[in-house]
Design a protein around this nucleic acid. Sequence first.
RNA 1: GCGACCGUAGCUCAGUUGGUUAGAGCGCCGGUUUGUGGUACCGGAGGUCGUGGGUUCAAGACCCAUCGGUCGCCCCA
Length: 446
Amino acid sequence: METPPKTTPQAIRGTQDIFGAEAEAFAHVVETFERVRKLYRFRRAEMPVFEKTAVFSRSLGETTDVVSKEMYSFEDRGGDSLTLRPEFTAGIARAYLTNGWQQHAPLKLATHGPLFRYERPQKGRYRQFHQIDTEIIGVPEPQADVELLVMADQLLKELGVADGVTLMLNTLGDGASREAWRAALVHFFQAHRAELSEDSQERLEKNPLRILDSKDPRDKAFLGDAPKIDDYLSGEAQEFFGKVTSGLDAAGVKWTRAPALVRGLDYYRHTAFEFVTDRLGAQGTVLGGGRYDGLIEALGGPHTPAVGWAAGIERLAMLVGEVPEEQLDIAIVVEADGLDTLATSISTYLRQAGRSVHVVAIGSMRKRYEKAAKFDPRGILVITDQDVEAGHFARLTYKDIAKDKMSDANADAIMQIVSVFYPLGYFCDPRMFQAGEGITLKSHPK
RNA sequence: GCGACCGUAGCUCAGUUGGUUAGAGCGCCGGUUUGUGGUACCGGAGGUCGUGGGUUCAAGACCCAUCGGUCGCCCCA
């Protein structure tokens, strides 16, 4: 017989259990996103958390770090290679094709949920993390880029974090521009290969664009002379970018041109952007995205232009800071065990009337009051059994915390409560209440 | 994958140059006090000092490994 281990299994590295104010902040971000997304008429979508591995490897690019070393991939019992989604866009593109969502094009979608990446945990970086995400599929025009960016800007403003965050904007040009620029960059850096950092020498093979935002001083020395995207932009690409920037200006969205800004995933074209902050340590990007006109084709679909962005909920929540739980309206203290059902009637009524209620009915009397006070309610309603001769009397006392006394201001609240008791078999003399003495409920014989 | 720092009661932490039965605050439980009750006081429960080795007469304190945490590199939201 095996002895059962006494140790409690630990949570998986890089996952988090959140609670209280932190969890409220998380919920606040999601709720704000939901509200804003409706303002822009983005429709909700839910996709599975895992997909066939090919969904990601084919769309993100085999050589990207995400695909090559950060995916949670595994074989299921049927032998298929599956992967926990490391991002939203690929799965959305797959769903778009698989479900014939083309019929709804142009389609504005919003979603949020958990993503998984096998990375070293760090501030603002987790193995299971959460994003909010929006996409516009089937619109080749720059207006889509603008609408998405304006929406992101409004979201950050409504969350109250906009002043600490700046929009860094760039264009990668169309496919041809991007390739020409990329080739020029490779050519340029190849000449200085030996002087680059080890990381960048590797990036030269896999993702040369990323050398541009290297923090290594050895690389930075060359950045100033590196080829600029602007010199490789086709006329069309230039015009496209111009429309994006003028749209942002028209909407009053502040932006900063960041010619070295590139995205880590292969599928981006034209517009690329990040909302960055310096308040999150090493994890500066709070919201990022761009246009990915080639992605849906890579998944075997027709050429379909699309734009989108995603933002880290944890990161936004950290910027938002403490979001206190809403104050409790009423704590009900039940002083005698026989009055449980009365407490249930009252609390049910109050909650249905939209008031938050906590019922305290266990522990010593002293503890009950102590607990009620700790809930920090607006008021405490005490249910006592007073003058009980036949066990048919109950007495209600309401204390308004702010006024520290029985309060007439809450007469309405209590009268409402009382009004429902009659059908429940109780009645009271309102004059008792008027005198500020609380209310004595008497049971009436039907 | 690389580096730095850290890991003592439920929580936040003290624990002098290694040396008697490991402490505090908060929280929790019980009690006293306070004239409608978040106060004050008293008492109590709770830790094989992350885990496994090693050094030593002696380790929570030193060394190694391992697992976690935090932060940075990298990557990204």
